[in-house]
Structures are given as structure tokens and as C-alpha cells.
Design a protein around this nucleic acid. Sequence first.
DNA 1: TTTTTTATTGATCCGTCAATCAACAAAAAA
DNA 2: TTTTTTGTTGATTGACGGATCAATAAAAAA
Lengths: 188, 188
Amino acid sequence: MEPIRKAALVKATIVELGRAGSLDVTVSQIAKRAGMSSALAHHYFGSKEDIFLAAMRHILSLYGAEVRGALAAVDGPEARLQAILRASFSPGNFRREAVGAWLNFYVLAQTVPEARRLLSVYQRRLRSNLLSCLRPLVGVRADRAADALGALIDGVYLREALKEGPPDSAAAVATVMEFVASELGKRK
Amino acid sequence: MEPIRKAALVKATIVELGRAGSLDVTVSQIAKRAGMSSALAHHYFGSKEDIFLAAMRHILSLYGAEVRGALAAVDGPEARLQAILRASFSPGNFRREAVGAWLNFYVLAQTVPEARRLLSVYQRRLRSNLLSCLRPLVGVRADRAADALGALIDGVYLREALKEGPPDSAAAVATVMEFVASELGKRK
DNA sequence: TTTTTTATTGATCCGTCAATCAACAAAAAA
DNA sequence: TTTTTTGTTGATTGACGGATCAATAAAAAA
């Protein structure tokens, strides 16, 4: 039962995070959505913070899997780069729940060391993926380019997610690819 | 008294936001730090949300003034660009309170329309400042470049603010300037 | 001076919430 | 079958929080 209940709670947490748009989500709400009592939620996770951290791990691992899947399907540095972007900006990542979860993880990262650690794990993994694409393309400049590209991805995501009107995955990908092109010295 | 009290509450709100690292700040805490009772805070602002929005307006106007000041001191498109970056990444903007305020404004923007509006006002203003620098430099490409640059600024800020270890203003400026250089086709 | 407006607070209302616990049910082990 | 472990919840606790209000003080207007 334990893994089932935990998984249900994690999913419910993410939904509630998106619904509320803030960390102001009660354990009861989460438990109710997961079809159990709040006492049971406390039974399987020790505390509310533990539930949030588990949800964060889940989101990050989903994203990681998405990137891995996209990378497996393509070949060549540029195509791999584009695959990373498509995974990062997939419509699923712009759903209410996903946006709410990410933003609140940033907030959590300010004060909860474990949250900060998880976030930096994700960033390092992204960076290493980017680096392996960039090195064949721009050689020694890859290091600095990967830093900038990582930041650009976060920034574009943030803006696309918070702008008024529906987010546009393709536009987000295009914006970043254009940066890559200019970094390669190509100009149309 | 009203403007004095309101100003004190706004300042106290920002400090408390930074201290707590989340929107989980009580009106009593804010009022206490501002040296008054919570009842008085409710008297001058109708609700907690109003207090938050006032704090957000204050942060945005501080940032706006910082940029304006930096722009007034320099001449030429590239120098102006650098001035915007230096203002955006000034050490003051990496203080606990400022980071906490910004992150929580992003969170607020998900659910409070007025917060989203304020955020998009800020983004439009930044965009127009960037455009006026970029047009003389890259002509018709300026529009797309301004979008990317704006997002890059947000992303770099986010990463610099949340990374472990102290933020490095100069490194943030350098990262973005490097992007500008590659956009100009210059490569060292 | 009297009246009115402004400034201010302590107490209070009504509600919520995280966490705990005792108790019960059901399945597994003995 | 009896015992033990696992799963589950309703009720409770202890605390806190936003908002309101009556009441007081002080200043301004009349």
C-alpha cells in the first residue's frame, strides 16, 4: 500500500499546487484529492514538508525522463539540443500544475536546503546535457555557452508561463534556438 | 499619517518576505516590524493582499528608478545596455529581501491578476529599454533579440539568486554581455 | 468650547491547520 | 484459531491567523 498511497499523494500535491498557485495548500486538501484522510498522509509522510519534497523529486524526475526520452530519439548535436528544448518546453510543462510546482519549488529553495539541493541537481544535469551538445559545436566556448543557455531556458520558461494568454511551446523553442544559431555564428 | 504608515508597512513587508522566504507572512509580523498593531495595518490597507501588492509596486518602482538612474549616467547603445544589466544585477537586488520579494511576486502573478499585470508592466518597460539600445546595434533583429535578452536576464537572475554560495553580480553581467557580443557577431 | 474627524489598539470572532492518538478493521503470520 | 502486523480514520489538540469592532485618545474644525 505504501508506494501506492505515496504516489497518489504526490500526484495530488502537484494538482493542488497548481490549483492554489502557492504553497498555501493544506494536507487535508491533498489527502482528500488523493482519496484518503489527512491522518494517513501524515502516516506515510512524516510532515507536510516531506510531501512537498517528494512532489518536487517527482516533477524533477518526470522532467529528467522527458529529456532522456527526447534525446534517445535523435542524433547529432544540433538535433539533440533541439530535443532538450522541446522537452523543456513541452505543453505538459506549461500546465497549471507544472508551473505552480516549479515556481513554488523556487520559493522553497530559498529556505529548505534539500529543495535547493534538488534544484541544483537538476541544473547540473541540464548543464551537462547542454555541454555534450555544445562541445562539438563551439569547442572551448561550450562551458560559458551552457551556463547562458541554461539560464535562458529558465527565463524563457518563466516568461512564457506567466505571460497573459496561452503559452506557446514552439515560440519558446524558437527563441532559444535563435540564440544557439547566433552563438554558432550562423545568421539567416 | 497615512502615507508614513503605508510606507513603513511596505518596507516591513519586504523585509518579512525575505526573512520568511515565502508568502507565509502574517499581518501581525509585518505590523510589528513596522511598529504598529495589526489592526492599524488592516485600517490603512484593506487586506493582506493589498499590502503585498503595494510592496510589489514598491519593489518594481525601486528597480525602475535604479535603471533610469543608471541610464542617465551613460551614453551610447552598448554602454546603455551594460547600465541596464548593472542595475538589474546590482548587489542590492540579490539581498534576501529582494530575492524573496521577486520570487513571491512570480508566485502571486499566477493567481492575482493585478500582480500579473504589474509584472507585465515591468517586462514591457524592460523590453522597451532594451529595444532602444538594440535597434542601433542590430536593426530589425532587435525585436527578437530583446525578447531573448529579457528572458536571459530573468533566468540569470534566478540562477544567481538561488545558487549555493554568494551571488556574483559581475559574473551575471558578464554572462549577459557575452550573449550581446555574440548577437553582434563579435567574438573575442 | 463643542463637535467632528483622524489615529490607534486590545480583545474577540470565526475559522483553519498540522499533527497526534486512540480505536477499529483487515490481512498476514504463528 | 490466535496473534501480530499493516492500513485506516474520526476526533481531538493546541496553536495561529485574518478580519472586525468597540473603545479611547488626540488633533482639527466648527
